[in-house]
């Protein structure tokens, strides 16, 4: 197997509060090869969000503590990088698409202001410089890339003036601003209705494919995985219980837990669930 873009080895994370501690990640290892779409699946509390935060360097210590393990990005261990070097990567090499479009945008600043500010400091970290007008041009360009029909109007809007689907696309635009190589998507569209979510996933998939990005999709919904990923990691109680190429996982799940996740996917075609009597028609 070729060198992965992102590679996690033996990650152990513990949370402590009020003198009690609990290990929430046990020996988590996963790989995201360049240009590939990988999913990390699990129910709430399975540790997928903690894994994501560890990758992005968002875990707060205290209460979180990384006991051991490494998170390598292009061969460099992020956990051993000096904070300044680590911060350079956020929003530039790797970006996050946030989950909730209703709460992930600052309500009191315009979209242009928020995207512009992120771009400004990303440029500064990378030692680039751009004039205000160039920044604005880039913001509009990215908004157009996420298929906004009227980027100027969207840029001048406050979040409350946009629909949920549009805000989710703004969040995707935010992640694309500095042309990252790795996109980490935290259940994008979960807060939206099913149709809009499907559109968002399609958009994300197209953008990733067009740019040859690597995507790590964090989700509890295997239906989403089937749409977006080639390789799947299943997490339960802080442990990676199974990992396999997506097709293989869906046709021949090895773990009971995976099977129950697959059974939990709502199906729009009618009929009964897997495993129940009526399904073998």
């Amino acid at each position: 197997m070729s060198e992965s873009l992102l590679s996690i080895r033996g990650l152990n994370v513990q949370f402590s509060a009020y003198g009690r501690s609990q290990q929430v990640l046990h020996d988590v290892s996963l790989d995201v090869p360049a240009h590939s779409q990988v999913a990390l699946v699990g129910e709430s509390g399975s540790g997928k969000t903690v894994t994501m935060k560890a990758i992005m360097g968002l875990l707060r210590d205290p209460p979180a503590r990384i006991l051991s393990g490494e998170i390598r990005y292009e061969g460099r261990d992020l956990l051993k990088l000096p904070p300044r070097e680590r911060k350079k990567l956020n929003g530039t090499e790797m970006s996050m698409v946030f989950q909730d479009p209703m709460s992930s945008l600052n309500p009191v600043f315009t979209i242009a202001d928020q995207l512009g500010t992120i771009l400004k400091y990303a440029d500064r970290r990378l030692g680039r410089s751009r004039s205000g007008r160039e920044r604005m041009a880039r913001v509009l360009e990215v908004l157009a890339q996420v298929r906004m029909r009227d980027p100027e109007r969207v840029a001048a809007s406050y979040p409350v003036m946009l629909s949920g689907g549009m805000r989710q696309r703004v969040l995707i635009a935010m992640a694309l601003l500095s042309e990252p190589k790795l996109l980490i998507a935290d259940e994008p569209g979960t807060a939206l209705d099913v149709t809009t979510q499907a559109q968002i996933l399609k958009l994300l998939k197209d953008l990733v494919a067009d740019r040859g990005l690597a995507l790590l999709m964090i989700t509890h919904n295997l239906g989403v995985v089937r749409e977006t990923s080639d390789y799947v990691y299943v997490m339960n109680k802080g442990v990676v219980v199974e990992h396999a190429p997506a097709a293989e996982l869906f046709s021949a799940p090895r773990e009971d837990y995976t099977r129950s996740l697959i059974a939990a996917v709502p199906r729009l075609t009618g009929g009964m669930r897997f495993g129940s009597a009526g399904a073998r028609v």
């Binding site: 968002l58 500010t117 400091y121």
Partner: peptide, 23 residues
């Protein structure tokens, strides 16, 4: 969430504190 987001995108702390949070 939007403060967490600005952290994830590397907006420096003084800007976060006095712009994104204070307003």
């Amino acid at each position: 969430d939007y403060i967490e987001a600005s952290r994830a995108f590397g907006v420096p702390e003084p800007v976060r504190l006095f712009k994104y949070m204070l307003r």
